[in-house]
Structures are given as structure tokens and as C-alpha cells.
């Protein structure tokens, strides 16, 4: 089966600093791909390249087997790629519904169709079993960190997308909420979506992922099946870029 999303040889520099070197990543439908790596390894940068926030310097971007050009967030969204960014990117001065539909508002003629948007938002939040927000018309500024996280995730799953990428979605969450988000991640994959989960928590990674992609200093050290590796091997890949015959030899993938 062709992977939904495939990246090959991605390079990305910010001025003189090269952050991504020849990165390859394969993301399959129905699977959770965990993207791991130390702080500054380039995980968020890679995700932003996928999302059209940063243009890539060179490399191939294949979607459902076909090469595509993604120059803006709209291009990525049009392909069916939704991203929950690490910094969430919500507008504090807008309410939950307004944030969830930002940039893709339902309209009747030129008038916003608030009622339909409100219904759809309520349904999506309910499907994520979000019960703690008082009103979906309250400003995002009045939400707790975890609630904001949930709104950001709800925003991503609202659109019947094909690929959902979550950049450290559980970093700010308590135990119960983390379990809920992981359950949701698994559920999305089981529904046939391709899910990419960025996390520093090895337990979470092993709990939900089918494959693990480890970035080391901007290079893809290895992409392996979760069932083929152990915790300590992944930790080694993250911290030194190699583990046994897995990983980079002299900075080049084995």
C-alpha cells in the first residue's frame, strides 16, 4: 500500500543554520507513527515543513504517492493534513468555535453560518468526550492548558482529514487527560487516519505507536516498527543517533 505521506531527502536551513539534513519519513494510513528526538532535533521544524509553514529547501514531498507542492497552510489543509502545533496557535480573543473554524468558516453567502459551526464544533468536542468546557462560546483565553490542547486537537479532527500530526499533545496534560488523548490518537488511527505523534515520553510512544521515527541532530536516525525495538534502543537512537546496527554511521543512515 502506498504511504499517505512520504518525504525524501528534505533539507531545511534557517539562514546559515541547517536544521534538517536529508530527512526521509514515511507515514501510513491506519498507523500511529511516533516521531521522537531530543530537544532541538528538528521535530517541530519537520512538522512545520509538512504543514507549509516553512518552505523546504530541497527534497521530495509525496502525498498518496504523487509529488505535491505545499507552499502554505492552505495547501496542506487542502490535501487533508491537519497539524496541532506545539505552541497550539489559538487566538485568545476568539471563542472555541471561532478558533476551530478559523480560516475555514462556514458561510451562507457572505454571512458566517454561526449556528452550523456551533453544532459541528459541539459534535466534535462531544466525540472527543470533552466535558469540562462550560460553553463553546467562551474565549480560549479563559481555558486551562489542557482544555486549550483539546480545542487544538478538536480543530484538527474536525475536518475529516487524512493525516493528523500532533506535536507534543500531552506535554501539558495531567494523567487522566493524557490517557484520553492517547486513546484518541489510537482511535483516529484505527479509523484509518495516518497519525504522527511527537512525544518525549517513551511509555506513551510504546503504548500507541506502530512505528517509530527517530531524529538525531536534524537527521533521520532510523524508522522502525515499534514491535521490533526496545525502550533502551529507542533512547539510544535519540541520544546518540545509533543503536547496534540501527541508526547513523558517521552521520549517514545505515
Amino acid at each position: 500500500m502506498t504511504p499517505v505521506l512520504e518525504l525524501r531527502g528534505i533539507d531545511k536551513s534557517f539562514g546559515p543554520v541547517q536544521v534538517l539534513h536529508d530527512v526521509a519519513l514515511t507515514v501510513r494510513a491506519g498507523e500511529v507513527t511516533a516521531l521522537v528526538g531530543d530537544n532541538g532535533a528538528g521535530k517541530s521544524t519537520l512538522v512545520k515543513c509538512v504543514g507549509g509553514i516553512h518552505p523546504i529547501d530541497s527534497g521530495e514531498y509525496l502525498f498518496e504517492g504523487k509529488p505535491v507542492q505545499v507552499h502554505s497552510p492552505r495547501d496542506a489543509a487542502a490535501l487533508g493534513i491537519e497539524i496541532v502545533y506545539q505552541d497550539l496557535a489559538l487566538c485568545d480573543n476568539l471563542d472555541i468555535v471561532q478558533n476551530m473554524f478559523l480560516g475555514r468558516e462556514n458561510k451562507r453567502g457572505i454571512v458566517l453560518d454561526e449556528d452550523t459551526m456551533e453544532e459541528m464544533a459541539a459534535r466534535t468536542l462531544a466525540s472527543l468526550s470533552v466535558k469540562t468546557v462550560k460553553s463553546i462560546r467562551q474565549h480560549v483565553s479563559s481555558l486551562s492548558g489542557g482544555q486549550r490542547q483539546t480545542v487544538a486537537i478538536a480543530k484538527a479532527v474536525l475536518w475529516n482529514s487524512k493525516v493528523v500530526i500532533l506535536d507534543e499533545p500531552t506535554a501539558a496534560l495531567g494523567v487522566a487527560q493524557t490517557a484520553q488523548v492517547l486513546e484518541l490518537v489510537r482511535r483516529l488511527a484505527d479509523q484509518g487516519l495516518a497519525v504522527v505523534l511527537i512525544s518525549h515520553n517513551m511509555n506513551d510512544v510504546f503504548a500507541v505507536s506502530d512505528r517509530i521515527a527517530a531524529l538525531y541532530l536534524g537527521r533521520m536516525a532510523a524508522q522502525v516498527k515499534t514491535s521490533d525495538v526496545t525502550h533502551s534502543q529507542v533512547v539510544e537512537l535519540i541520544t546518540s543517533g545509533r543503536s547496534g546496527d540501527l541508526g547513523l554511521t558517521n552521520g549517514v543512515p545505515a
Binding site: P73, A89, L90, N93, G103, R104, E105
Partner: peptide, 22 residues
């Protein structure tokens, strides 16, 4: 009542979030 107005508020609230929303 229009998307244009909504987007003005969004840009004023968080320009980066607005940009990421396309």
C-alpha cells in the same frame, strides 16, 4: 458577521495563528 471581520480579529489576537490558519 463576515469571515473578513473574523480574520481581522484573529490577526489582531495572534497573527501567527492566523497565518497558520491560512
Amino acid at each position: 458577521r463576515t469571515a473578513f471581520g473574523r480574520h481581522l480579529y484573529a490577526v489582531g489576537g495572534n497573527a501567527e495563528a492566523a497565518r497558520r490558519a491560512g
